[in-house]
């Protein structure tokens, strides 16, 4: 195909290695900058209901809201596929709704994370509900929220 390049000595060889190192550096810096800007725009902040109310999250802003499904709040709409419920962290609770098949472990007094945004009247419209399938597993973001089965109280721990 192509003849072997004779291995040339001298400053030009150094030059090529320097170019490669500079390219790698530029790629690394570019990658980190890209990651930082994307994280600023795309990383969804995680709120518990009390935090979301305190922070006055703008309607329409995509966030993740995590808490316990409040006891006695889960209702199914007549269409059979839309549910209304309240999410609580023990300090505050917010109304939420979702259309779709909920994860298997989604139930009253169970932990859940809802992805979505608030609408103008303060209801959280979930587009996705995350609840891992393993009962022993708590989503990482849910740490510090506990449900006491005896008192039916949800408590937020610092």
């Amino acid at each position: 195909m192509v003849a072997v390049a004779s291995p040339r000595q001298g400053p030009k060889r150094k030059h090529q290695r320097l170019m490669l190192v500079l390219l790698a550096l530029a790629a690394t810096i570019g990658g980190v900058l890209l990651a930082m800007s994307a994280l600023k725009d795309q990383a969804a902040y995680f709120y518990t209901p009390a935090e979301a109310l305190a922070a006055r999250v703008e309607p329409g802003t995509a966030i993740r809201l995590g808490g316990m499904v409040e006891s006695g709040s889960l209702e199914r709409a007549a269409d059979g596929v839309t549910i209304h419920f309240r999410l609580t962290d023990g300090k505050a609770s917010v109304p939420a709704s979702f259309s779709g098949i909920t994860p298997d472990l989604f139930k009253e007094n169970g932990g859940a994370i809802a992805e979505g945004s608030f609408d103008a009247d303060g209801t959280f419209r979930a587009t996705n509900i995350l609840a891992k399938h393993d009962e022993r597993y708590m989503p990482r973001e849910m740490e510090g929220i506990q449900y006491d089965p005896n008192t039916h109280k949800v408590e937020a721990k610092p």
């Binding site: 990651a35 795309q42 990383a43 969804a44 902040y45 995680f46 995509a62 973001e141």
Partner: peptide, 23 residues
């Protein structure tokens, strides 16, 4: 690693498909 690092600093953040798909 970002969510793990921010959580150690007390801020809880979820990084999911919106970030990964965008970059």
């Amino acid at each position: 690693l970002y969510p793990l690092l921010t959580e150690m600093m007390g801020v809880r953040v979820s990084v999911g498909p919106p970030y990964f798909n965008a970059v």
